[in-house]
């Protein structure tokens, strides 16, 4: 994680990054089980790398596999909440 990323985030540096403590982190890494979470604002820490998450997008849980490059971002950035609008012809007309 770049230290400047924390400084630029708008959050006080003395607080450090915001994160949620997942109690089952180690088991998840060993068993490769997905962690279901609604904590979209949780910062991805270096020890999350390799863990599979199921992140809530407001409707369902989307799979997110954490890689090294994602460190410092938030979990919610990877579970998109919006669908792109596509025009569908109405069936009954």
């Amino acid at each position: 994680m770049q230290p400047s990323l924390i400084l630029r985030s708008g959050r006080s540096a003395w607080k450090g990054p915001y994160f949620v403590a997942f109690p089952n982190l180690r088991e998840a890494l060993e068993s490769n089980a997905a962690i279901r979470t609604q904590a979209r604002s949780c910062t991805i820490l270096p020890n999350f790398v390799g863990i599979r998450f199921m992140v809530h997008n407001g409707k369902d849980y989307l799979p997110v596999t954490v890689t090294q490059d994602m460190v410092g971002h938030k979990l919610g950035e990877f579970a998109h909440t919006k669908k792109r609008f596509t025009y569908k012809m109405t069936k009954n007309k």
Binding site: T67, D69, M70, H73, G76, E77, F78, H80, R84
Partner: peptide, 16 residues
């Protein structure tokens, strides 16, 4: 390119 590669919302919006 970094945002796009990791598949974040920011990268997706740029691509769109």
């Amino acid at each position: 390119a970094h945002q796009r590669m990791i598949g974040s919302y920011v990268g997706k919006r740029h691509a769109m």
